Computed example of a mutant assay.
Amino acid sequence: MTNLLETERLIIRTWIPERDAEQAFVIYSDPEVTHFLGKASLVTSVESQRQRLIGNIERSHQRNNRTEFWAIVEKETTTGEWGVRGDGGDEGAGGAGEE
Results as ranks from 00 to 15, higher is better:
residue 50 R to K: 13
residue 84 V to F: 10
residue 99 E to T: 14
residue 16 I to Q: 13
residue 62 Q to L: 08
residue 40 A to R: 04
residue 38 G to K: 09
residue 24 A to V: 10
residue 46 V to C: 04
residue 10 L to S: 03
residue 46 V to T: 08
residue 87 D to P: 14
residue 16 I to L: 12
residue 74 E to T: 06
residue 45 S to P: 03
residue 11 I to C: 04
residue 67 T to G: 09
residue 16 I to H: 11
residue 89 G to C: 14
residue 8 E to L: 06
residue 31 P to V: 11
residue 35 H to T: 15
residue 39 K to I: 07
residue 83 G to M: 04
residue 22 E to C: 07
residue 40 A to C: 10
residue 70 W to L: 00
residue 8 E to V: 12
residue 29 S to W: 06
residue 30 D to S: 12
residue 51 Q to S: 05
residue 86 G to L: 01
residue 60 S to N: 13
residue 68 E to C: 10
residue 83 G to F: 01
residue 80 G to F: 07
residue 78 T to C: 06
residue 94 G to N: 04
residue 11 I to P: 01
residue 6 E to T: 01
residue 89 G to A: 14
residue 92 G to P: 00
residue 33 V to C: 02
residue 59 R to V: 07
residue 16 I to M: 12
residue 3 N to P: 10
residue 56 N to L: 11
residue 57 I to M: 01
residue 64 N to T: 08
residue 79 T to G: 03
residue 28 Y to W: 09
residue 56 N to I: 11
residue 48 S to T: 07
residue 2 T to V: 13
residue 10 L to Q: 05
residue 39 K to L: 05
residue 19 R to M: 15
residue 42 L to I: 15
residue 42 L to R: 14
residue 2 T to F: 12
residue 39 K to D: 08
residue 29 S to I: 13
residue 86 G to P: 00
residue 75 K to S: 05
residue 26 V to M: 13
residue 47 E to D: 06
residue 24 A to N: 09
residue 64 N to H: 15
residue 82 W to H: 04
residue 22 E to S: 09
residue 21 A to W: 00
residue 12 I to Y: 00
residue 58 E to Q: 09
residue 73 V to T: 05
residue 42 L to G: 05
residue 50 R to S: 01
residue 83 G to I: 07
residue 82 W to D: 03
residue 3 N to V: 15
residue 58 E to R: 08
residue 59 R to E: 15
residue 40 A to F: 13
residue 15 W to L: 14
residue 28 Y to H: 09
residue 96 A to G: 09
residue 14 T to G: 01
residue 94 G to K: 02
residue 43 V to R: 02
residue 99 E to R: 14
residue 59 R to D: 15
residue 67 T to L: 12
residue 21 A to G: 07
residue 73 V to E: 03
residue 94 G to H: 00
residue 94 G to A: 06
residue 55 G to V: 06
residue 99 E to N: 14
residue 88 G to D: 11
residue 32 E to Q: 15
residue 46 V to Q: 00
residue 79 T to H: 10
residue 19 R to T: 15
residue 77 T to F: 04
